[in-house]
Design a protein around this nucleic acid. Sequence first.
DNA 1: CTGAAAGCGCTTACAG
DNA 2: CTGAAAGCGCTTACAG
Lengths: 359, 359
Amino acid sequence: MPDDESEPLTPRGSEPGHRMTARITIRDVAALAGVSVTTASRALNDVGRMTEATRERVRAAAGQLGYRPNSMARGLVRRRSFTLGLLTTDTYGRFTLPIAAGLATGMVDRGVSVFLCAGENDPERTRLNLQAMEEKCVDGLIVAGKRIDRALPIEVPQQNVPVIYVNAACPPGAVGFVPDDLGGARAAVTHLVEVGRRRIAHLTGPREFAATGVRAQGWQEVLHEHGLAPFGHAMFGDWSEDFGYRTAQAMFGPDSPAERPDAFFCGNDQIARGVIDGLTLLGLRVPQDVSVVGYDNWEIFAKATRPPLTTVDMGLFDLGQTAGHAMLDMIDGKAVEPGIVRTPCRLVVRDSSVPLPEK
Amino acid sequence: MPDDESEPLTPRGSEPGHRMTARITIRDVAALAGVSVTTASRALNDVGRMTEATRERVRAAAGQLGYRPNSMARGLVRRRSFTLGLLTTDTYGRFTLPIAAGLATGMVDRGVSVFLCAGENDPERTRLNLQAMEEKCVDGLIVAGKRIDRALPIEVPQQNVPVIYVNAACPPGAVGFVPDDLGGARAAVTHLVEVGRRRIAHLTGPREFAATGVRAQGWQEVLHEHGLAPFGHAMFGDWSEDFGYRTAQAMFGPDSPAERPDAFFCGNDQIARGVIDGLTLLGLRVPQDVSVVGYDNWEIFAKATRPPLTTVDMGLFDLGQTAGHAMLDMIDGKAVEPGIVRTPCRLVVRDSSVPLPEK
DNA sequence: CTGAAAGCGCTTACAG
DNA sequence: CTGAAAGCGCTTACAG
């Protein structure tokens, strides 16, 4: 019965390749349920009023046939593709990957899929990607970067589509999400103070990064609030292990000044790792002699240091998810406050900072 | 003139949010060029025969209006969405990320976009992802894993869509791509032999990984071909720094056997890093006393070791790109040989293995 | 060489 | 409560 439809005009099954078997359409479902296509559509979308029996019959038919709505057809009429584009130049993936995973995971629960656009820092490719997103009619665009003070080299020309910036500079009036670096730094330094450290040095990335300034500020704030002085100035270097290594060796080596820190708060996990390696090679013990705290919770680093590293997790997975939900709101026309939202960071305590005995 | 169309029946601009301005359609282009929609379509797609002047006029109109074809509409009739789904459980991203970047980059040049499905190892999410891909009518599915001997916990039920497995086990009769581990290992060991090493040990991951067996085989083969004996048995441990560190310390520490290797070929960069750290802490010099070669060319590790690490690059970016092009062929109905294709690895020489003086 | 018309698989006023 | 019909933006036989 359900299969006695007249043959479709375009030949099915004649397409190239694979064992093609005609896709189940809503007409098949309607036929099997003995209702019109209109009713089938309404039943499946849970709209309109009808007897529960009818609705249930349609659902059963859909289930039995393994019906999957064709989202291209639906998108065409609803003017919604249920897709998002994720644009990034961070091929490295350190920051973008957890964001992307959080975004995609959060979206699939809402029936929305995410296009991955790997920018590759190539302007021509970026243009191609943007064009592809326009043709695919994405409902929104997420632009993800690797530093909060730089806009991506991406001119978003789409005027019909909401845009959210993540972990990147965001134009005035736009909406953006970045990790709360001040809070993260404060949590790290507060922890060091609480475990009894008093001479806390700060080693971080280049001064040009907005994040380094903010984190240094958090370091100073917390120390002042506890009546402590920062140990020297914040030291701006680069994000490398080598910087941490060299600095630790210089501060604790044979010719180093008498005044030495009892803790390092580092701007990322690589620097922290270099510090630990440098100290270890000089025979110092972490954390007994010196506590070390990193930033990023990049587990492959943080868990492999000897000892494992206490560090700040920026919650990038959640950040991606949060941005996705905000995007859904924008798409639905709900008002979303423009401006930058700072999402929480959390301290992950491991062995490199374990509390000293209280007395 | 181009704008004197009668108002569309569905109100435009009344959708939620953003400054909506009606999207340019092929009708607009046709109107501006003074041709029928049929002709406009043919001109834009470079099909059919018409005077070059007409074609050019249509192109100009499209350019002037900034026309972008709606790929949902096109997909509906062509039964092609020009999208691919990338399924993975590797949230970690170490392997999948370069593959994804290569795939997406290669595809955008051909007008194909890639959906990112983060499996999260959650079967229910995987099911949702698969369902989403089916509704989105992807033209193909790429299933990417992190080890070549494990199938993903993904039952691909789609019968209408070609599937390619990347860096994962692949069912009989399917097509898969994996890095050529034998070749990679051979390149690494050949290099060590060529720089004068004779007692080459092999430290690698767990025995259960197919990759470790293949790489160990490459190690043995090359040594035999040069009339050398392997230095002991291949040592199977885990993929961690700690394993390399402990082993190096055991083999070179105070109570170690007299017979010592002059080189380590390691199954990944983390092990290699542990080896280097262990040796360094014992006062040995890399590469003067012992050469070390890693595997993966995970730059964040390979470049940060002291000294920088010679290692095998699996060419995952290219692997992703290659898989994508194969997928396009399958979609086009071209015959693609089933079975596993091994894609080339290449040795990246840095300082941890520099040649000894010949004599 | 060019165009009117049908149709892809849905949704949604509109009319019973 | 239910259905026939129009339409989303394209492509493609079919007919001049």
